[in-house]
């Protein structure tokens, strides 16, 4: 296994790189004049990224299908959210569905 120094260094490099990614957006944004149209597309871009994150984390574990319990939970949560159920109902129903299915042996 890696040395202590190596692990500390790796953590700091990952932290600094991540911070740089986080910082670049707000800095770039100040330097360019954004038309309303581009502004709108940027909003869409963030939604697309989050949607892709929902899709991949709901269905995949690493690179393989995660099984049925998790996507079923997310689907129940999604339907409830679409029906404008309160947020906490959505989240608890998603977790509860996945947990319940696992108790029943569905994975």
């Amino acid at each position: 296994m890696s040395t202590t120094m190596g692990l500390v260094l790796a953590t700091i490099v990952l932290g600094a790189g991540t911070f740089a990614f986080r910082l670049a957006g707000p800095l770039l944004r100040e330097r360019v004049e954004l038309s309303p149209r581009v502004e709108k597309l940027l909003g869409v871009a963030a939604v697309v990224l989050l949607a892709a994150l929902v899709g991949t984390t709901a269905l995949l574990d690493e690179q393989e299908f995660v099984g049925f319990a998790r996507p079923a939970g997310v689907a129940v949560g999604g339907i409830l959210a679409w029906k404008k159920a309160p947020f906490f109902v959505v989240v608890l129903a998603a977790a509860g569905t996945a947990a319940g299915l696992r108790v029943l042996g569905v994975n």
Binding site: L50, L53, V54, T57, A58, V66, A69, R70, P71, A72, G73, V74, G77, G78, A81, F87, V90, V91, A93, A94, A95, G96, T97, A98, A99, G100, R102
Partner: peptide
Amino acid sequence: GLDAAFPAVLLA
């Protein structure tokens, strides 16, 4: 079921 909570939060 917390693994299902994270995507559900973002989806909502």
